[in-house]
Write a protein that binds this DNA or RNA. Structure first.
Lengths: 271, 271
DNA sequence: ATCTGTGAAATCCTTCACAGCG
DNA sequence: CGCTGTGAAGGATTTCACAGAT
């Protein structure tokens, strides 16, 4: 067995679930007295909230846009607006990675950029394998935007014999049976699953076998993985259904507001 | 100008409000007059946490898989495991939509399925438009899996003159200038943006002009939208960067654990 | 005996608001 | 004076743990 169910998505949503750092010490839980003002032992890089990590990636993108336009410094207010958050949240997020701002002025775009890159581990390249070279797999393999050259695609896999050996985006397609071998040899860090749902779990197992610890899953299934493996999912159906919920909710709100208005007006009230 | 920055991504938003079920408006939307499952006090039917909505969609998928395999009832523990959450969370989530379980037994698969569908608004069809018919757009337009017949794709748009008029997945491509008109005429509920980042904001503005209130954004930009519009984003780059963060973190943990172990063993401690 | 439904506690995240630096 | 950095307050979400139904 040894399978643990976890998901990364959405998360999201928000939903983003943290890898449960479950330390089940026999005695009490760790006194999480995170010494605030006290400088913490450099040993322990303190946890950055999962939600903040996701936003740091957004800030990074916004910053790179600003750099292109020649911006040298930026205030928390500007950056926050461009990133779609409020400025208090942005400052709090940045405070998790250190203090790189100048009071009365703002942040230097390039300093902030490289600090975020450092925290996100973007200074090393993470090799990516894409499994499932259908419509979506093609899109992913060609995604010039596997962005900022931090995530080179270094292996492609499919079952279809007609695809094996064919180069896609300059890289030949291998058979999924070779996943464990090839991933291990090429030291693939991240596996992207773009297969039909029925194949996804088997593919995932082989990726794990090949030493892959991080999986990005586009297949509409919940993957079961061992504890040390991190899965994030991108799920079209679920995104649509969440939007659907909001449509329904808004429709109902509109109805009940209209009813209220009608009732009020028939009472001579002003709404 | 009245742009409000919000994003739908995997961040958590305040809990969404469900319609106040006040007195019966017109024939109205909330047919929650189910005699069998206990609805729940009208003034308590207020809000379903955003995070729970996302998971309800997951449960729905797991349930449909179970139904296919002939399952009639399911316990919270089984369903939770299959969905990758713990059972307390699952039960809490289900409690937001009513009480449809049987103590000592579990839930009936078909009852639960239709109740979740009802809450998510999947009883009505939501028409979808896809903008940007590149690799990804193709994948989306052909996605037989715009799943469970709840989300028919009813309009396609692109700028490329060579594409206009060409049918993709049985539907002709229109020019993006026609977005407002066509969306309004066909009563599109959800717009999916699969354009290059530079075009995304303009496309989004036109969708909103056409009366679209929900947007699913695949372009790597933060969209600015009016308040009444709901945006969710799917961002490959950000997903990869979040995974990258976990790679980095795990690497550090592994290092520090090794150091700790070394230190401990040189002290004769047991780890 | 088993499994749901749910208050209450614990945890995680966001927002406020202001001290303090440049 | 303007803007950052951050305790503290306020919410939201998750987990606990158990009463109660079958």
């Amino acid at each position: 067995m040894a399978r643990v169910q976890r998901d990364g998505g959405d998360d999201s949503a928000p939903t983003t679930e943290l890898p449960a750092v479950r330390d089940q010490g026999p005695p009490a839980v760790n006194g999480r007295a995170n010494g605030r003002g006290a400088p913490m032992p450099a040993d322990k890089v303190r946890a950055i909230p999962e939600a903040a990590v996701a936003r740091l990636a957004v800030y990074l993108r916004v910053l790179s846009g600003m750099a292109e336009q020649g911006a040298v410094t930026v205030s928390s207010e500007e950056l926050a607006t461009a990133a779609g958050v409020n400025s208090a949240k942005l400052r709090k997020d940045l405070s998790y990675i250190g203090t790189y701002g100048t009071r009365g002025v703002g942040y230097e775009v390039d300093v902030l950029t490289s600090e975020i890159e450092r925290v996100l581990g973007l200074t090393r390249q993470q090799k990516v394998a894409v499994v499932g070279i259908g419509n979506l797999g093609h899109a992913l393999a060609n995604y010039g935007g596997f962005p900022g050259r931090g995530f080179p695609v270094e292996a492609l896999f499919d079952v279809d014999p007609d695809l094996i050996g064919i180069p896609v985006g300059g890289l030949p397609v291998n058979h999924i049976d070779d996943i464990p071998d090839i991933c291990a040899k090429r030291k693939i860090a991240i596996g992207v699953i773009a297969t039909p749902p029925t194949a996804a779990q088997a593919v995932c197992d082989r990726l794990v076998e090949g030493g892959v610890h991080c999986v990005l899953n586009f297949a509409p299934v919940v993957l079961q993985v061992p504890e040390h493996v991190e899965v994030r999912k991108v799920d079209l159906a679920i995104e649509l259904q969440i939007l659907s919920f909001h449509v329904a909710r808004n429709a109902e709100q509109r109805v009940s507001r209209r009813t209220a208005a009608a009732r009020a007006s028939s009472n001579g009230e002003v709404v």
